[in-house]
Every structure is written in structure tokens, then in C-alpha cells.
Simulated scan of single mutants.
Amino acid sequence: MNEDLLFNEAPGGPPRYSHLSNKPVQYLTVADRRGQVIGYVWANDEDDAAGWAVRKAGGDNAFNEGSVWAIKLHDAKARGIAPTAALAEMIQESDPTRSSHVVPGSLTEAPNADVIRRLANPT
């Protein structure tokens, strides 16, 4: 009962982008139908990294609608698409009549992924 538990990661599972990047990232602002920002999708090709940062201030609505953007990232990685190409697809396929969409003209660069996480959820 006093021994440390050892966890070994099992091989397999779906491919995923890394959630870490200390290099510059590109990001998109995502809003709901009413125009309220629900989060940000970010990407960096050099680190093969991308992620979804939900705005906790958006509550359950932001969390639920934001899951679509995380799924889009998972699907893009499974198809072998570079992270920033996934962002380009999201811009191209965005539809403001859906429950959430990319804010037009929102493609921006930030110094790293942590900046995006702080943007989504300032302390």
C-alpha cells in the first residue's frame, strides 16, 4: 500500500498534435452565433502542435460549442495535415450561421501557446 504506482503509456490511440509550443503560434478567434468569443484555436508547424483554448467565462455553452474545434484538430491530425493548414481549413469552412464560427480576419500570431491560454482565461 505504500509503493508508488507506475503508469506506462500504452501504444496506439489516435494521432494528436502536441499541446506544447514555446515558439510563435498562429491563432484564430472563435465566436458563437451571438458573436460572443468562446475560445481560440492555435497552431505551430515546427512543433507539430495545436490546441483549443476555451474561455471558461463563456460557461457550459463555450465548452460545449468549443468541442467541435477540438474535434476538427483531431480529424486534421488523423489526415496528416500540418497544424497551420488545419487553421486554414477552419477559416475556409467557417460558417457564421452555425453554432460557432471563426471570427473573420482573426488570424493572428502570438509568441507561444501559453499566451493564448492566458488570453482565453486571464487571471
Rank of each mutant, 00 (worst) to 15 (best):
S94I: 00
D47W: 12
A120H: 07
H101N: 04
R117I: 15
R117T: 05
V115S: 01
E9L: 14
N8H: 05
S99H: 08
E9K: 08
D47R: 15
H101R: 01
G13I: 03
E93W: 00
R34M: 09
A53P: 04
A110H: 15
D95E: 10
V115F: 01
G12R: 02
V103T: 08
I91F: 02
G35E: 01
D95H: 03
P122S: 02
T108Y: 04
I116D: 06
M1D: 10
E109Q: 11
P14S: 14
Y40I: 08
T84I: 08
W42N: 10
D48L: 12
E65L: 14
G80I: 04
P104G: 04
S99P: 00
D75C: 03
H19K: 09
H74I: 15
A82N: 07
Q36I: 05
S99W: 01
S94R: 02
F63Y: 14
E3C: 01
R55N: 08
E65T: 10
G12F: 01
A113T: 02
S67L: 09
A31C: 09
W42P: 13
I91H: 06
Q36K: 12
A120K: 04
N2S: 06
Q36M: 06
P96N: 04
V115L: 00
Y17G: 08
N121S: 11
G51L: 13
Y40T: 13
E65Q: 08
W69H: 06
G39V: 07
G80S: 11
D32W: 03
R98F: 00
D75E: 08
E3R: 10
I38Y: 00
A76E: 05
Q92G: 01
W42T: 07
G59A: 08
N121F: 08
A110G: 07
G39W: 15
D45P: 04
E109D: 07
E46D: 12
Y27I: 00
D45G: 05
D32T: 05
G39L: 06
Y27G: 00
T108V: 07
G105W: 04
L107W: 02
K77H: 10
A120G: 09
E89R: 14
A50V: 05
V30Y: 00
N2Y: 04
A70Q: 13
W42G: 13
Q36V: 09
M1Y: 12
S99Y: 10
R118I: 12
L73A: 14
L107E: 10
M90I: 03
Y27R: 01
A43R: 09
N121E: 07
A62P: 10
A76I: 09
A120C: 09
A49Y: 09
S67Y: 02
P111V: 05
L6A: 09
S94V: 00
A86F: 13
V54P: 03
H19Q: 10
I81D: 00
L107I: 11
L119R: 05
F7H: 12
A88G: 03
D4V: 02
L119H: 04
N2T: 14
Y17H: 03
M1C: 10
V54I: 12
A78H: 11
P122K: 01
R118E: 15
S99F: 03
N64D: 12
